[in-house]
């Protein structure tokens, strides 16, 4: 790339723009002053201690994990049959059906959150927890349908037909032939859905109640009223978790699995 000097300089600057803000956050997490400072004057781990000791952050973190996991599993359960049917069968109005199932991507997240909040929680007096779970399910379903659908496109269905002709029943063929062949697609759709649910804010902001606030929503309210490095410390922990996930994905599926 030495031949493209100007391009290299430009790209390096863009990467600095993308990375410096995150580096600054990481550095401020180790500050020893009561407010955020950069550069920091002394090094301390106190904010990490405070973040981990905080009952509200811990509770919110566990809720986020729980919701992300349940919403993703529900979306897999509902989404895989949809993706399978849409790529296997020539159902009538396929394009329309597909856009119906992908419609949560067209509706802005804040509107999904608002509609669920207004209709389920206010009007029907639904408890908040199932509302939150359903909201996250809606947000992640399109990822599952798209990514699993994508790997089904690559799958040669004649293999399934061979299994049928050899006397395998259709359910068995699906579970023993089709599913194992699209397992990497299922895993990457799982990860994408999980991460997107975990990071979701608009739906979580609307569907929160006493004791039911996800981690990003908790961080959001914390940031609006405080300016101490606790959030920096939580950010560093979240970034470390992200790096760990990326590392594992790179070693198994290849990093491009997360770029869909």
């Amino acid at each position: 790339m030495r031949r493209y000097k100007g391009l290299t300089v430009f790209s390096v600057l863009v990467f600095l723009f993308l990375f410096l803000p995150l580096v600054i956050i990481a550095v401020t997490a180790f500050g020893d002053q009561p407010t955020i400072q950069f550069p920091i004057k002394g090094v301390s781990f106190a904010w990490f201690g405070k973040a981990i000791a905080s009952a509200s952050f811990r509770k919110a973190f566990l809720l986020s994990i729980q919701i992300a996991l349940l919403a993703t599993l529900l979306a897999l359960l509902v989404g895989i049959p949809i993706a399978y049917t849409l790529s296997r069968h020539s159902v009538k109005g396929k394009k329309l059906i597909k856009s119906f199932f992908l419609s949560p991507t067209i509706i802005p997240g804040i509107v999904v959150g608002y509609a669920l909040f207004q209709f389920l929680v206010i009007k029907l007096r639904f408890p908040v927890y199932p509302g939150l779970l359903l909201g996250h399910f809606l947000v992640v379903l399109p990822y599952i349908i798209r990514v699993v659908g994508g790997s089904l496109e690559q799958f040669d269905f004649s293999i399934e037909e061979v299994a049928w002709s050899l006397g395998c029943n259709k359910w068995k063929a699906f579970f023993q032939i089709v599913l194992p062949n699209i397992s990497s697609g299922i895993i990457s759709s799982f990860l994408l859905a999980f991460i997107n649910s975990f990071n979701n804010i608009p739906v979580s902001m609307f569907l929160s109640g006493p004791g039911i606030t996800t981690l990003p929503a908790t961080l959001m309210s914390y940031v609006e009223y405080n300016f101490d490095p606790t959030v920096s410390a939580v950010s560093v922990l979240l970034m470390l978790a992200t790096i760990l996930i990326m590392f594992v994905v790179e070693k198994t599926l290849g990093i491009s699995a997360l770029a869909k």
Binding site: L18, T28, I36, L219, V231, I255, A259
Partner: peptide
């Protein structure tokens, strides 16, 4: 470089906005 570009996408948007509060704020 692709990993470096994906990383911010997977980072929570509160964290990413908070970074700019630290950069653009009064202090």
């Amino acid at each position: 470089l692709i990993a470096v570009s994906i990383f911010p996408m997977l980072t929570n948007s509160v964290v990413r906005s908070f970074a700019w509060i630290n950069i653009l704020g009064r202090n």
